[in-house]
Design a protein around this nucleic acid. Structure first.
Lengths: 224, 224
DNA sequence: CGTGGCCTTGATAAAGTTCAAGAGCCGTGG
DNA sequence: CCACGGCTCTTGAACTTTATCAAGGCCACG
């Protein structure tokens, strides 16, 4: 367990002693696929780290449409906002698959921060990079149309995979639609169009980038 | 100057000694209306606090459409993301009116944080509440249509003003359109429709809420 | 009094959503 | 082993919302 904690980016560089403190205050939680972890508006008494599995953070409209804000994997944290500002969670959290998390209670964690400034700096880095992601998401949603967003997403995926052109979607197309701020029907049509234009090839959840330059232009200009 | 610094929320609760340190590392900057403070992609060697005036943070599409991410007034900070994650600014910053800022260089500030945990906690609170705002913005952009966003914005304004129904827009309608993720023409039409429906009355930058319940329904359901 | 900025209004076109129907896939159970 | 029900995904057609293009009004300021 101590190695698991030590491998979490948030806790990188902490002395052994503090890691032990963390182990002491952390609570392990196990979820099945599709379980709700918390709901928007719930009181947040602490935050979470994904140990295994995947978790989606999302907003819900009154009609039930969902907008995914993040998809988190092992080592990533969520729910910190409720720890440092306000007391309730600003969105929903649900597992995409069977998952394990560590939960860190608010007060104990804040006490720890006061002893260990580098923990605070790590947390600041994480929140900052999340703000950066959000800025990109907002830009994408309001400044680009769906084909541009999809192209940008595919290129991003490719980067994650060391530039490989053979991509495997690790989420369903319905979920992807929600990430892109649209609905499955629209995504389906645009994938079809991009295939017709020979930008990509699609085979179920396998997507191959055929014309990278074309995708880059599309992500830039938004015109398909 | 020391009183000015002491009155900034980020520095609330700091001992005098640290406030003096802050004065020593801060740089005062003066801008005229419409000046650019930094551009997306610029290297960020520190962050800013608005002393007087107002600053908008925004993204730009390739065609020139702008999406405002924040509008900041006295006491609010911006540019921190570049301090703690990455090194370049994720968006543009420009003054809306003649403004004064304090600039805090990255390294000196990080050094200070390590001495003063409550400074770190303040900063964490600020970043967290900004994340919360972003989550709301994303929700708004992807889940609601423009009338719903506008209704939500007006109600938010009303809240800011202790629930008053007589609102004074402190930004131009063109800027408001950009905040709402749309264009001036669309905003104009929707204001006209909402007036026709007797939800509001508009007189230049004066907006009066006539039917609060109706606005709330609209913000909730998005149907005008 | 004219000029430029900001706002409004109208006509048109594009993009996306909704509704409806059908195809493919998979696990379960007969 | 096959049939069934339940998913997810795809496709089509109508409709809605919003952007775009173009023109005109209002007001402040020189």
């Amino acid at each position: 367990m101590i190695e698991q904690i030590a491998s979490i980016p948030l806790f990188k560089g902490l002395p052994k002693e503090q890691l032990h403190d963390l182990v002491n205050i952390s609570v392990e939680q196990v979820f099945r696929r599709g379980d709700s972890i918390f709901c928007e508006g719930d009181e947040g008494k602490g935050f979470y780290v994904v140990v295994s599995g995947r978790v989606k953070i999302f907003k819900l409209s009154t009609e039930g449409k969902e907008q995914i804000l993040h998809i988190l994997g092992p080592g990533e944290t969520f729910g910190e906002v409720a720890v440092f500002a306000g007391r309730h969670f600003p969105a929903f959290a649900e597992t995409l698959e069977a998952s394990k998390t560590f939960f860190f209670p608010r007060n104990s964690f804040i006490a720890l921060i006061q002893k260990e400034p580098s923990l605070a700096l790590n947390m600041l880095a994480i929140l900052s990079s999340r703000l950066r992601q959000f800025a990109q998401l907002v830009e994408s949603l309001s400044l680009k149309e769906v084909p541009g967003r999809l192209a940008a997403y595919l290129l991003y995926l490719s980067e994650q995979r060391q530039g490989s052109s053979d991509l495997e979607l690790d989420i369903s197309k319905g979920q992807l639609a929600s990430v892109l701020g649209t609905i499955p029907e629209t995504l389906s049509r645009i994938l079809a169009r991009m295939t017709a234009q020979k930008l990509i090839q699609v085979n179920a959840s396998q997507i191959k980038i055929v014309n990278r330059q074309g995708l880059e232009d599309l992500a830039e200009t938004g015109k398909l």
